[in-house]
Amino acid sequence: MKAKQSLGSRLAEGVSGGLVRVLLIVVGLFWLVPTIGLLLSSLRSPEDIAASGWWKVFTEPSQLTFDSYAKLLENEDITSSLVNTVWITVPATLLVVIIGSLAGYAFAWMEFPGRDWWFLGVVGLLVVPVQVALIPIAELFGSIGIFGSVIGVVLFHVGFGLPFAVFLLRNFFAEIPRELLEAARLDGAGELRLFFRVVMPLGAPAIAALGIFQFLWVWNDLLVALIFSDSGSQPITVALQTQVRQFGNNIDVLAPGAFISMVVPLAVFFAFQRQFVSGVMAGAVK
């Protein structure tokens, strides 16, 4: 086919190929520039930021400084909120993975009355907006005394992470070949052993995808923590949010703070791209 192409059409293809390349490079820059702007802003002094745009560092590289970062790491509000972010994110992720796996396995391989109806009920909860629960849970947590604590934030994230977790893992576990489970059973494995030694390892790809997804979701959350944490338990997103009202004056906290809060999700993203993408896909198509 290629051989039959006329010179003209080949030329046209070459030109349009070049056009596509230029277009994609421009779009790529368009997508990169905002983040680069944040990074370079975080590496300039507040005086320089007030005086000129971040692109000035290309002509005056001497402006680059780590001062804002150094100051930020001495800021107790910020450092303690970073610790809180970890204390919220890690348990919220582990709990969703563990509780979701147990339920996913039960829905996939155990027999009990109304199994499929229960599962459909969980599926129905997939798209419930968190907004519906903010006021009721605030009152509930208030009455049992965990409003404003890390525990409350974690619990809320677990609750709203579970429908997706159960849905994803149940579907993945259901595809485990029956023979494998039967073989393990014949070897005398009990239910728990079966779960930990066969189902969990075989389900590792889905569990990883779910874990990364939930991790990023909780790490990046603002709204839930804004409502359910207090000044002692607030994560980095809430700590930074309090500075936004006076954006210009607080830029030396906001820019490096935002960048630090992005480092972990970006590292997770680049390290586990494949799992992340498959988590996204499991959520939407297929």
């Binding site: 997508w31 702007g37 944040l38 990046n220 603002l222 820019a255 935002a258 809060s261 992005m262």
Partner: peptide, 20 residues
């Protein structure tokens, strides 16, 4: 490059675009 912003928080994206 285009997918990367999905990994960051909306708060960080918000600060990025306040600057933009």
């Amino acid at each position: 490059v285009v997918f990367m912003p999905m990994a960051i928080s909306m708060l960080a994206a918000g600060i990025i675009f306040r600057l933009v």
